[in-house]
Design a protein around this nucleic acid. Structure first.
Lengths: 343, 343
DNA sequence: GAGCATCTTGTAAACGCTTACAGCTCCTGC
DNA sequence: GCAGGAGCTGTAAGCGTTTACAAGATGCTC
């Protein structure tokens, strides 16, 4: 099992009495190989334990057999799960996954995207996770030889997979309204910065649209902006409770913010469905544990789907028709933090 | 900006007015290159955005400039954070990170490790995260040309970074004992299976040693085995409470199990520090939110440290002396789920 | 049975890099 | 001055594949 000299394609050719070229063709399942030759070659390869050198075939074939997954802080729940799912798809397609994590560092990021050749040296395609690019970067990338797909972007000239954040937020808000809550607050994510996902603004828009449908004016006091983290939610909810007023129901822009809100509420003697109804978005793994009602988004599916699209384009020689924007469903999961208003 | 054709070493040679050979030497930091040439070559390479093709250099006998990170289900909190940290270190060392996720699939796993040549085609080194290998796989890997390092393994012939699980468990148990609790229960992880981390057994051992020091006999009824998940902890704690008895304090083998235990306790009207003290291990990001007392392990540090060791060996031509086993500290973090026994 | 299409096989040139080895320049010491 | 060495640079031969392209074999049509 040690590293003895590996059999090369030449050895297989010699043993089978055929030329290197024929062996190469046979082993890759290409047409124009006689049954007899095919068999002899397979036997020889088997006997020698031959495995093609990926380095050599990549060099000669002009492909790297590698795909880059580019994500901001892969440590967050969402990216970890989506990346994992994508990696699995790529592995099944015989592609290696190169992980590139953008730690918010503008330097690395901009250099990467302004000059996509940086990537094209090493990979055949790129899968972008919630990375906000400016117009020139989008153009540079789409003009490069790279196949591109993304998760959670908008209006990009390549395949994209995501959810409809506005609709999800609308559904969450609608749920609260349907339960008879009229005094709604929202813990909204902070404004998107360059290089971050843009979901926050859309979720806010969905909230406002639902209110609007009921001819309700959104109360500026009841809209608190905070980072999409547990602590962000905690701070926002604390501020809401202690310096403003206690609303009838709260829509948290993401589940993690909802967790923080839950903690703040508990500290103020407000329990989840009793005093205030609370709903989130995401269906974070912790949400079912905490009984949080939420609008779920399919996380691994988004990664896997986008990866599939990319892998297919790579196989079809980069040509699978016009790029498509896919929106995955976001079912409402009713748990224990929302209930009918008693007004 | 859109240099479509990738720059090759030849382009750098032409632009700098030197030969391919000299360029190759200069770019790899080999001696016998004049300062002037060095500078011109670096400028040219920079200008062209040149990066060596890993396939070509590997084929020609050099390095690939790539490292594989191999982890079981990268989706778990621990791996996501550790992998992210390692990736950052590799990026800073100019290495690309290839992510290989072992989804517990024995097939893929065994093939990968029984025949490491599979890897050695693509990468220069391998960073293993909590992947349990059998003796022959360890041997195959260490005899390959690959540099290897790991996180959370034991007795392997390469650099390893981890915590002392036995000691961490001991410290957790010791904390409960010091608070005057004598009636202790443990939610122990289930037995390690082939390909999984082995922490569970050691944490159990640490628990037992601490008891032993106090000449306490571990009560078999108070040792519940369960998967290291929220639900596992929930089930285990539920069983403990409903079919056995309520202990004075509980040591959960990991924080996630502790979360589940917390939920079970709440459902049975038992609050965390009041009726039962609860301690975990890990310092999961959710732990501070829930106020869980725990023995923390430095997660990103483990990944970053192991990555650093690997990167260094790679730079020093695979020779940095004998492999070392590093144990990182595990400080106790006292929060709100433990308190002095009132007996 | 010549002419042609079809199928199979082989030749040889890349692919982009590393690396012996040879060649050149320049400096030292006598 | 000139042999000898040191330091720098270039030439060219791989590394193990893929892939035009050419060549040979076979079978068909008229």
């Amino acid at each position: 099992m040690t590293d003895r000299a590996r059999a090369t394609i030449r050895d297989v050719a010699t043993l089978s009495g055929l030329s290197i070229c024929t062996v190469s063709r046979a082993l890759r399942g290409l047409p124009n190989v006689s049954l007899d030759a095919q068999k002899r070659i397979e036997d020889a390869a088997e006997k020698l334990g031959y495995r093609a050198s990926s380095a050599a075939s990549r060099l000669a074939g002009g492909r790297t057999g590698q795909v880059a997954i580019i994500a901001p802080k892969a440590t967050s729940w969402f990216f970890a799960e989506a990346v994992e799912a994508a990696e699995e798809v790529f592995a099944d397609s015989g592609l290696d996954t190169v992980l590139v994590s953008l730690r918010g560092q503008g330097k690395v990021r901009d250099r990467l995207f302004d000059d996509p050749t940086e990537f094209s040296q090493r990979v055949d395609g790129v899968l972008l996770f919630g990375v906000n690019l400016d117009a020139s970067q989008v153009e540079a990338l789409s003009e490069s030889r790279l196949a591109v797909a993304s998760v959670g972007l908008e209006g990009v000239p390549w395949d994209n997979v995501g959810i409809d954040d506005e609709a999800a937020a609308w559904a969450a808000t609608r749920h609260l309204l349907d339960l008879g809550h009229w005094d709604l607050a929202m813990l909204a994510g902070s404004e998107p910065s360059h290089g971050t996902v843009t979901t926050a603004a859309q979720r806010r828009a969905g909230f406002e649209r639902a209110l609007d449908e009921e001819h309700l004016e959104p109360d500026p006091d009841m809209m608190v902006s905070a980072p999409s983290t547990i602590d962000g939610g905690y701070q926002a909810m604390t501020e809401l409770i202690s310096t403003r007023r206690v609303p009838g129901a709260v829509f948290a822009g993401c589940d993690e913010a909802a967790f923080g809100a839950l903690k703040a509420m508990r500290e103020h003697g407000l329990s989840a469905p009793k005093k205030v109804s609370l709903i989130g978005i995401d269906d974070h793994p912790m949400s079912s544990f905490l009984g949080l009602t939420t609008v779920a988004q399919p996380v691994p599916d988004q990664g896997a789907f986008a990866a599939t699209l990319l892998a297919e384009r790579l196989q079809n020689h980069d040509d699978g028709g016009a790029p498509h924007d896919h929106r995955l469903p976001t079912p409402l999961i009713e748990r224990k933090t929302t209930r009918r208003s008693r007004h």
